[in-house]
Simulated scan of single mutants.
Amino acid sequence: MPSSKPRRSPKPQERQRDPERTRQLILDAAEAEFAAHGFQGARTAAIAARAGVNQQLISYYFDGKEGLHQAMSQRWEERRRNLVPPETPLPEQLRRYALEARHNPDGVRLMAWGGLEYTGPASDPDHVPRAKMLEHSVEELRALQAEGRLPAELDPSTLVVMLMAAAMAPTTLPHVIEGVCRTDPRAPEFIDHYADQVALLVELLGRGGDSARDSAG
């Protein structure tokens, strides 16, 4: 039985031809593949085919599938920093996160897949940085409680989780939206409306203490 041919390493000219463009092509293809199938279901051969590159270039630039996934996480973190700088008020943060269903749908699907495939910290080395990025939101809610503008019974940490889940609903619960709202959950008009509603919800929560004081007065 003839032996199989060894896998060919990328030629020097393949590695040197506009490497940054090649990296970006691979990252774009990986985002689409991981968004469609999750980390476990994604295949590097499919990613290479989407990018139109030699599969060996994935190993050359990213040291394989795991390294590629980590590079994508870093890419999302850069996008998040630009999307919601630390000084962004919480209602606007949630509005922008909800709008990602329109502007960056694959990114939201990646976040959802991260939860579906999560089996503990070892399965998600980026869970600590991802948690840290929400600490500012938790502190903002605690400040509202200190001012008497948010009910003391609410746990700020779990409330942030609930609000993030609400912001992701057009991606994670499209069938529910279609059934309840009688609309296409992917329609830009609906996503814009939904994002405004999520932001309004947070604003109304923050006015809770003021409303209670007004009623008492």
Rank of each mutant, 00 (worst) to 15 (best):
G208A: 10
I177A: 03
G38I: 04
L83P: 09
E92D: 09
K132H: 15
P125A: 05
G120D: 02
R96P: 01
R109Y: 01
E66G: 04
A166P: 08
S73D: 06
A122R: 04
S157H: 10
E189N: 10
L163D: 06
A46P: 00
L57C: 12
D106S: 12
D210M: 08
V160G: 11
Q93V: 15
L110Q: 07
S211E: 13
L141K: 12
P91N: 08
P188N: 06
R15G: 11
G148W: 01
G115P: 00
Q93W: 15
E31G: 13
K132D: 10
S3V: 13
R186V: 01
R96Y: 05
G120A: 06
I47T: 09
G115T: 06
S157M: 03
L57G: 09
K11W: 02
D192K: 00
A169M: 14
E20T: 13
E203Q: 12
R109M: 05
L57N: 08
V138P: 14
D106M: 07
A187D: 15
G208C: 13
S137E: 13
L99Q: 03
M111W: 09
I191R: 06
V108Y: 02
V176N: 00
M111F: 08
L201G: 15
A169H: 03
G115N: 03
S215G: 10
R186D: 04
K11G: 11
H136T: 15
S157C: 02
R79L: 07
A169V: 05
D214M: 15
P89D: 13
Q93L: 15
M111N: 08
Q93R: 15
D126V: 09
A146F: 00
P125Q: 04
Q74Y: 06
Y194P: 11
L201H: 14
R75A: 02
S73W: 05
G38L: 03
S9L: 12
D214P: 03
D63G: 10
Q16C: 09
V138N: 11
P89S: 11
L83S: 06
H136D: 14
P151N: 01
S157I: 04
A51Y: 13
E178R: 04
A48C: 08
L57V: 10
Q93P: 02
